[in-house]
Design a binder for these strands. Sequence first.
RNA 1: CCGCCCUUAGCUCAGACUGGUAGAGCAGUCGACUGUAGAUCGACUUGCCCCCCGUUCAAAUCGGGGAGGGCGGACCA
Length: 328
Amino acid sequence: MDTYDLITRNAAEVVTEDEVEAMAEDPEGKRAYVGYEPSGVLHIGHMLTANKLIDLQEAGFEVTVLLADVHAYLNDKGSFEEIRETAEKMQEQFIAYGLDEERTEFVYGSAYQMDEDYELDLHALQVETTLNRAQRAMAEIRSGETAKVSHVVYPLMQALDIEYLDVDLAIGGMDQRKVHMLARENLPELGYDSPTSLHTPILADLTEGVGKMSSSTGVTVSMENSREEIEERVNSAYCPPTRDPDPDDEGNERENPVLEVFRYHVFPRFEAVVVERPDEYGGGLEYEDYEALADDLESGELHPADAKSALAEYLDRLIAPGREKLRD
RNA sequence: CCGCCCUUAGCUCAGACUGGUAGAGCAGUCGACUGUAGAUCGACUUGCCCCCCGUUCAAAUCGGGGAGGGCGGACCA
């Protein structure tokens, strides 16, 4: 696979392709970053962007993981002390998950976000940004909660982080694209470069195939799940034998979450996928790429139940090292 | 500071006027059917009715006090 394809594989969107192509010419030493609000436990959503970081490291990038403690504080996630503790646990899990320790720098937001330069630039950005724009870019607020001033400051700091961490490429889920667009438009007003960004898809909820997989509904897969829990959750996932399911009763588009997890989590991390299947149904199968597996599910050659047991197996392998860390 | 509105199941809310065993929808759980899930049937669970005091035989409901949240308070007339 050539470098550009490696950098952009499984991305939902790249802004812009030309800028990324230029980076792919000479990727060695280029810098990329993702910011995470420390939550203590790595879940499948974190793992999706982490996969992209692993791709980038393989391409030669240096990676910065921002442990966004100040952002978590702005989002009312607890005291600084509590947030810091969970951040430390998270850092270990990222390494256990497979990030290259040599090429990963973990930075706490509080290490530079209180500096005078940063604060002054933040105020400058506040002057440049309309309330409406900041509101559209802000992180989703919990239901029942109303927007606070902290919520609109939040995306402005994300934009500024890109400059202060000196990154060439900002990574995030599609839910972060408005932040990155705001950064592209407003950072130049402060005399900084307009940043390049790459967005990963947001995977559908496992049980519904609609909306996004969220920790709030409890149906997610994380580093604290046992093998049995993973099997249980994967087994209860929505999985019609097609890659393009019909909309639900309310007309919402549905995805096949089992295929999505194969595509975005399993195949990027394994050479091949072996599906163990009882002899009565035709015996074992092996797939070297996602398309082959999806084709077989579509044609009926691969039954969803067999796909699920394989998925649980590979997810468990991905999670096992982090789970060990968490146990200590 | 002043005024108005809201607070009941995980969520959205009815119930209050007229006091009498706390409800619906959705979600969730469990079965049936499918070699998965969903859909479809069938069954089931869920509560500090925001807090305190009072009235009453009896308070989610009436009265008083308090807390939390939301909205409003330019000019003109």
